[in-house]
């Protein structure tokens, strides 16, 4: 009986607007359960504040301007650090992918440095830079450098040699060959690097800001911990998660735009 029922159900009737909401069902359900658990006292609010309390704390901080200021500071550090580390990594990836000499000269060194976890450098970085902005930027840039470097290099090295030969046969100059064949061919891999780097970027920043900072989201969370403001602590964590998701979505949009030729990104 039930088998027949499930087969005869009209499957392809789908409301398109509902479709877009599906990924949000689980997070919303979790928040709802969380709220209920707190209100009924199942979870003591000293351990975990109710979502409504977190929202309220966020609203207060928003009104005082503190929230916006801290988010802005963190966002600024993340982007500048990402830009610096990312462009250096990209430049090295290009150079070592395109030139044997450059690869011989620097690749081994870079591979060795890569094996040092960059967060292990925090004590040294504090000694060097204090808790200055440059300390955070340095750490973020260092963390972002490697995924971008490695994936750019890998992307360039794995461009189909038959296509490169084709480009040469058809008289492409070096510049044209790079622009028309090598770079587009390396792009999917570069995007993998960017997505990795974005994750590392937030991770580095959270750690750096909680340890050595006088502003930013991590600092806000640490301050709140001192005053036992657990709702603000949870708020900071949630904002970090949200910003991470935002960065990831932005890179996905960019990917979709530039890789529209790729079978994986074509609408079926």
């Amino acid at each position: 009986m039930s088998l027949i029922d499930s087969i005869s159900l009209p499957r392809n009737i789908r409301l398109p607007r509902v479709d877009g909401l599906v990924p949000w069902i689980v997070p919303l359900a979790i928040i709802a359960i969380w709220q209920i658990a707190c209100v009924t006292g199942f979870v003591p609010t000293r351990v975990l504040p109710a979502p409504s309390d977190v929202a309220l704390a966020g609203w207060k901080l928003l009104l005082s301007g503190e929230l916006v200021r801290n988010i802005w500071v963190s966002f600024w550090r993340a982007s500048i650090g990402f830009l610096i580390g990312g462009s250096i990594g990209f430049a090295f990836g290009l150079a070592n992918g395109l030139s044997q000499l450059s690869a011989k000269l620097t690749d081994t060194t870079l591979q060795m440095v890569r094996n040092v976890p960059h967060l292990a450098l925090i004590p040294l970085v504090i000694l060097w830079f204090g808790i200055d902005e440059s300390a955070k930027l340095f750490l973020v840039a260092l963390g972002v450098f490697f995924p971008i470097y490695l994936n750019t290099l890998h992307g360039i090295r794995t461009v189909d040699p038959q296509l490169i030969e084709m480009g040469r046969i058809y008289g492409m100059t070096d510049g044209e060959l790079f622009r028309r064949v090598i770079f587009p061919g390396a792009l999917p891999s570069i995007f993998v690097g960017i997505r990795f780097a974005l994750g590392i970027m937030w991770l580095t920043l959270i750690v750096a800001e909680t340890i050595a900072a006088s502003s930013g989201l991590g600092y806000m969370a640490m301050q709140a911990r001192e005053f036992m403001l657990i709702d603000v602590v949870v708020l900071s964590i949630l904002i970090y998660a949200l910003l991470g998701k935002l960065a990831d979505s932005a890179s996905r949009v960019l990917e979709r735009l530039t890789l529209s030729w790729h079978p994986a990104f074509q609408k079926r």
């Binding site: 038959q162 296509l163 030969e165 064949v181 587009p184 061919g185 792009l187 030729w261 790729h262």
Partner: peptide, 10 residues
């Protein structure tokens, strides 16, 4: 050639 060698991104 035996393979078309087209640029997939063009």
């Amino acid at each position: 050639f035996q393979e078309p060698r087209l640029l997939p991104w063009a």
